[in-house]
Write a protein that binds this DNA or RNA. Structure first.
Lengths: 232, 232
DNA sequence: GCGACTTTGTGAAGTTACGCACAAGCGATC
DNA sequence: GATCGCTTGTGCGTAACTTCACAAAGTCGC
């Protein structure tokens, strides 16, 4: 029953939104804003204001009624909750286009992720420098992970090498994996994996686009025929 | 009451999983498998078997009791549902690392997305060829969109150019946008936007990693004290 | 063709997430 | 220091999603 650690257990849906709030809030902070209401933040994030308040309330109540939230404190709280109050060491596996894009992706270092190494199994890519980081051979992975106490690994390899990459990460002692390869990788219990498939998002989009098109076609059909059975 | 088109309206959560099923099924199909049970697919996708069955049932009932699902037919159905039974023309805005990675990303063309152009506003990048596609100047966008009837645009620009990119896409007539820039872009009603922030996923991971660490620390503390109240 | 076995499809219960609506709390003003 | 206006925090009804559990429907061997 200790007062402030027992509150924990934040819903997944909320955790998924916190990074977005964090980003919007940081933007505002840079713009010199010092205070923000749930309503304003909700507008920025394109969500419901009550949801924002409930989300923030899981971290404790840091707002002031009649006023809003202190931006700086709020940012601090969210960062702490997400574990961004200290630096995370990450490694990237695969020095192809995607690996290089990730290495150069500003959002990582900005938020306290330090890229400790980028690895590839192809000798042709090894020793090339991308985004200021020298590409290492995959065999050096365990050493770097141990030395720099890396806990997060990013898989940016082709699909067929992803499982091998995951195995190597796990064996090296990494406990969280972000997988950009379009396959489901198997890992032992206790290892977290998140998968981001760039084409999945595209497919969700085209599903909606598809629906929009058929809906429009049906409308036209109804208008043309003057008949109700448009779904035939 | 026409029997097979009226069923529609698939839950969002299901739509988000269909691409994953599709991919796993396609893999199996290439491997020569002809039939699959909901249980097998559930194992592959790391989800509950009942969920798989319910998901598939939204497209109609294509399984055979006692046997399972015909792989080829199932793939066909999912593809049709996702609108992958015809080719989608897409454009990519931003020819930086990410834009190039996306252009080279196999998953796109494999699934019927045809990259009709990659655009950048930087003259230095224009006319360079990446992944077999010549980079065009952003001003040529409306023309290409109209000519090739492009309906999906991908934003792979830096954050500060993303809103401009979105505006240009909308003005050119694109109706669906996949946004990789770490900002929320504003678009008129009727335009779909999906946002993929590579660092959001990383933050969700580190939240869990964080929890894991503090949980472990608490366990150690409790073990040390010999006290039962582990959730303090 | 019958019984044993398998796997689907789906009601219904359980769980999680959403959003309304409003009391409670804070600042400002007089 | 009382009143007013604004914004938070949250209880609660509703909706969406998940999972269980089982009848229905099929295959297979004899």
């Amino acid at each position: 029953m200790s007062p402030h650690r027992s509150r924990r257990r934040i819903p997944d849906a909320t955790v998924a939104r916190l990074p977005i709030y964090l980003q919007l809030l940081t933007e505002q902070l840079e713009r010199g804003v010092a205070n923000i209401s749930s309503d304003e933040l909700a507008t920025l994030a394109a969500v419901n204001a009550a949801k924002v308040r409930k989300d923030l309330s899981y971290m404790g109540s840091y707002g002031t009624r009649g006023v809003g939230y202190d931006l700086e404190y709020l940012v601090y709280q969210i960062r702490r909750e997400l574990g961004l109050d200290h630096e995370w060491s990450i490694v990237i596996l695969g020095a192809g286009h995607l690996g290089q894009a990730l290495t150069g992706y500003g959002g990582f270092s900005e938020r306290g992720y330090s890229i400790e190494g980028i690895f590839d199994i192809d000798d042709q890519k090894v020793d090339v420098t991308v985004g200021g980081v020298r590409v290492r051979h995959l065999d050096e992975l365990p050493q770097v992970v141990a030395q720099r106490s890396v806990s997060i690994g990013v898989i940016a390899t082709p699909a067929e090498s992803a499982q091998d990459a995951a195995d190597r990460l796990v064996k090296s002692g990494v406990t969280s994996i972000l997988n950009f390869a379009p396959v489901v990788v198997n890992v032992p219990l206790g290892i977290s994996v998140r998968r981001v498939d760039l084409s999945v998002e595209l497919q969700i989009l085209s599903y909606h686009e598809q629906r929009r098109l058929t809906a429009a076609a049906q409308l036209r059909a109804v208008a043309g025929e003057g008949v109700g059975n448009a779904t035939a």
